[in-house]
């Protein structure tokens, strides 16, 4: 079930397993991810065009995704983090829809198994 989820979201199940030991634990952390606010913070910062807040939120989201081994989402999160770090807000705006897209896929899949 959890392995299936990682396949559907383009994540790395083996990596997640090595970090969290078993599916039970991974499920616990998937639950934490649902409660994590960094995506929503990023979204509102992008909308209000506040670059610093956007950078901070993207940076946090990236770290979380890396730890969760959400490969696809962490790649776009890293991309937007780097644009924001370099103060390229327009480039970041171009990337943001794909962040949203990948994020929604992850959330949908997690909700399915919860």
């Amino acid at each position: 079930m959890v392995e299936e989820l990682y396949k559907n979201i383009n994540g790395n199940y083996e990596e997640a397993l090595s970090r969290m030991q078993n599916d039970e634990r991974i499920k616990k952390f998937l639950g934490f991810f649902l409660a994590d606010t960094s995506y929503n913070e990023l979204k509102s910062a992008m909308e209000s065009k506040s670059l610093d807040d956007a950078f901070r939120a993207a940076h946090t989201l990236k770290g979380v995704c890396k730890n969760m081994a959400f490969t696809a989402l962490s790649i776009v999160a890293e991309a937007i983090t780097e644009e924001l770090r370099a103060h390229n807000f327009e480039k970041a705006e171009e990337i943001f829809p794909s962040v949203t897209n990948e994020y929604n896929i992850v959330i949908t899949e997690i909700n399915k198994i919860m």
């Binding site: 969290m20 952390f29 934490f32 409660a35 730890n67």
Partner: peptide
């Protein structure tokens, strides 16, 4: 760490 997931991962360890 401000992120629960990161704290929990270290806590597990």
């Amino acid at each position: 760490d401000d992120v629960l997931i990161n704290r929990e991962l270290l806590k597990d360890i």
